[in-house]
Structures are given as C-alpha cells and as structure tokens.
C-alpha cells in the first residue's frame, strides 16, 4: 500500500512526475498547510520499486508490504 504522510508533504509533486508507471496523481485535496497532496490512482500497477520513497525530500511517502 502507498501511504502519504499529510503532515510532512509539501506538495512538490516529484513523486507524481517521476513514478515509472504513473501510479500517483496530484489530488484536489489540500493538507493543513495548503499543499495539494499526491494520491494513488492506479495502485494495482505499483511494482514497489520504492523510487518515490527514496526521492521524496520530506520523508512523506512510503510503501508498506500489505
């Protein structure tokens, strides 16, 4: 499962643009500080390469084994 930490995300969208299979999308939802959060739209396509987890500057996204 892809989990996004709403408290830490700054909405830079790096995970959205550089996901190799395009799992994520910028949502309309704002977090408390007013950033647009990414949201998984095609989670079944995720290959768990963990690129988003490694490139995220804010430690806000991670993949669980569930």
């Amino acid at each position: 499962m892809i989990k996004i930490n709403e408290k830490l995300c700054k909405g830079c969208s790096i995970c959205v643009y550089f996901c190799p299979v395009g799992v994520l999308k910028t949502s309309e939802k704002l977090n408390r500080k007013g950033y647009f959060l990414p949201t998984p739209v095609r989670e079944d396509k995720c290959t768990k390469c963990r690129f988003c987890e490694q490139i995220c500057p804010e430690f806000a996204i991670h993949i669980t084994d569930e």
Partner: peptide, 12 residues
C-alpha cells in the same frame, strides 16, 4: 517537516 523549500534537493 524540514526547513527546506518546496521541491529542494537537500531533503532527497
């Protein structure tokens, strides 16, 4: 959260 700007490479 860190003090870096949005999209900064320092966090990476």
């Amino acid at each position: 959260p860190t003090t870096f700007c949005q999209g900064c490479g320092c966090g990476t």
